[in-house]
Simulated scan of single mutants.
Amino acid sequence: MNTKVNNSLLDLSLANVSKTFRQKLIDTYLDIKRSCVESDFEAAGLAAGKFCEVLIRLLQHEVTGSHTPFGKPVPNMADECRKIITASNNSVPESVKSIIPRALVFLYTMRNKRGIGHIGGDIDANRIDGATIARTADWILCELIRVFHKMPIEEAQDLIDGISVKSLPIVWEVAGKKRVLKDGLNAKQKALLLLYSETESAVLTEDLCSWIEYTPSMFAKRVLDDLHQKRLIEYDRESELVYLSPKGAKVVEDELL
């Protein structure tokens, strides 16, 4: 995801949204998308909560002319959405007054009641819950662009269609293994990306080698040693564990994601 490009395009497409809300809305939306691409569903849930907090204030502003100040908690999200839906102001688009508030209630409920990032249970629903959150946020932002856009209708439609495309995860978990789906990466880049995707603090050398499908006898010498010397990873030869360093994480975020 090219965050800078998406940020600029979204800023243009939402130019008619007050600056009070616009950048906060874009930032939290992109945080949702980024977190889902990285399979960090707990972070996606947190970003969705912030997205909802900005969105409710935008809706309040558009429908009532005032909003809950930032920094002051919204007392009850469902009640505030109900006030918007039942408000007597008929000058705002039906979507803003009726449809988006209902989508907001669903999104906020998913974020809170489903417990994104939850532990336990027979079925791990984090992935499908995260995907549902991302798609709901997609729809809401697309609808805001449709209502508020300040660009030719053809360009607005193209942007909406682009946002609506399902994000392809960079790292795919399948049958107890991980695979890098991004093309054109060498073994060292794949190793960094796989370490970044791992929720645990370290990965066994054997697992990392298997995920990359590298020759085991050459993996440490040709891949891990160089990354270790550059301080992108910590390679513990005694325990055969590999840790991603803060420097390595920054390389992933700046160059690979």
Rank of each mutant, 00 (worst) to 15 (best):
E53W: 00
S35K: 07
S39F: 00
L30M: 08
E42P: 00
S35F: 05
P73L: 05
F70Y: 05
P75I: 07
K24N: 14
K24H: 13
E42D: 13
M77A: 11
A43M: 10
L46I: 14
G49R: 09
A43G: 03
P69L: 04
P69C: 10
L58S: 06
E62N: 01
F41M: 05
L58I: 05
C52E: 04
R34C: 08
D27M: 09
D31M: 14
A47G: 09
H67W: 00
P73T: 00
V54M: 10
L25V: 10
E53P: 12
P73F: 02
L55Y: 03
K50E: 13
E42F: 02
A47Y: 04
L58C: 10
E62V: 08
K72E: 12
R34P: 01
K50Q: 15
K72L: 14
L30C: 03
G65T: 09
R34I: 15
F51A: 07
E62K: 06
A44N: 06
H61P: 12
C36L: 06
L25P: 07
D40C: 09
E38N: 11
F51M: 00
P69Y: 08
T64H: 10
K24M: 13
L25T: 10
K50Y: 09
A47W: 10
S35G: 07
P69R: 04
C36W: 00
F70T: 01
H61F: 05
Q60L: 05
S66C: 12
A47V: 07
T64L: 13
Y29D: 04
R34T: 15
L58G: 08
F51L: 11
M77G: 12
R57Q: 09
E38K: 10
H61R: 04
C52Y: 07
E53F: 03
E42M: 08
S35Q: 07
H61I: 04
E53K: 13
L59P: 15
C36T: 15
P73K: 01
K24F: 02
E38I: 05
L55Q: 03
E42T: 09
G65Q: 09
K24S: 15
G65L: 11
V37F: 13
D40Q: 04
K24Q: 10
K33Q: 07
H67T: 14
Q60A: 02
Y29P: 06
F70N: 05
Y29C: 01
V37Y: 12
C36V: 15
L59A: 11
P75W: 04
S39T: 13
S66Q: 11
V54L: 00
N76L: 13
D27P: 01
G71T: 01
G71F: 03
N76M: 13
A48M: 08
N76T: 06
V74R: 12
A48C: 14
F70I: 03
H67D: 06
V37Q: 15
T28L: 06
M77I: 14
K33T: 05
Y29N: 02
C52A: 12
V54G: 02
C36Q: 11
A44P: 10
V37N: 15
I26M: 05
E62H: 06
P73M: 01
K72P: 14
E62G: 03
L58T: 12
M77T: 11
L55K: 01
T28A: 14
R57C: 14
I32L: 09
V74W: 00
S39R: 15
D40L: 02
F51I: 06
T64R: 14
T28R: 14
P75L: 08
E53Q: 14
S39H: 10
F41R: 04
F41S: 09
Y29L: 00
S35T: 09
L46S: 13
